[in-house]
């Protein structure tokens, strides 16, 4: 059977989760490979969740928040941005391809964009192949 990547998406409540919802309501197709988990803000996303997802068998992780300047809580997405940059370096040192982690901004109005972003990470991870970290 062809490899179907499993991707965990961490989405902020106010922009990306609503944007993903809009994609659904508007019947825009997006790959089922991305399995969303809602948090209030991208600032809540602890890098621990990302490695936990890899350890539990995810082949990729998507972090998505409001566009810079638009975070419902003002600055949470800047924290996510900085964590993302440092986390990429650490994943690389561990031997996980940093492209397995993707950070993106999707607003509540961007259903189309949500579909594009999920397609992008799915294709990206499909090329990288399975990660096999689940014990």
């Amino acid at each position: 059977m062809a490899f179907e990547p499993k991707i965990v998406g961490f989405l902020c409540n106010w922009c990306s989760y609503t944007g993903a919802d809009l994609a659904g309501v508007s019947r825009i197709k997006w790959p089922p490979n991305v399995r969303p988990i809602r948090v209030m803000c991208s600032g809540r996303i602890d890098p621990t969740f990302v490695v936990k997802a890899f350890r539990e068998g995810a082949d990729g992780v998507l972090v998505s928040g409001c566009h810079p300047g638009d975070c419902h809580y003002y600055q949470g997405n800047y924290k996510a941005l900085r964590r993302y940059h440092l986390l990429r370096r650490v994943l690389e040192q561990f031997g996980i391809h940093p492209d397995r982690l993707m950070l993106t901004w999707v607003s509540a109005a961007e259903g189309e964009r949500w579909a594009k972003v999920t397609q992008e990470i799915t294709e990206r991870v499909r090329k990288l192949g399975p990660l096999h970290l689940k014990d």
Binding site: D46, K52, Y78, L81, R82, H85, L86, R89
Partner: peptide, 28 residues
């Protein structure tokens, strides 16, 4: 703490004083 290193990454990046990706890379 569930993961010492990840917690430190989270804490440190939270207090890095920049919102500009290029500068963040430089600091990191």
């Amino acid at each position: 703490s569930h993961d010492m290193g990840m917690k430190m990454i989270s804490a440190l990046s939270s207090v890095i004083d920049s919102e500009d990706p290029a500068e963040i890379e430089r600091i990191i």
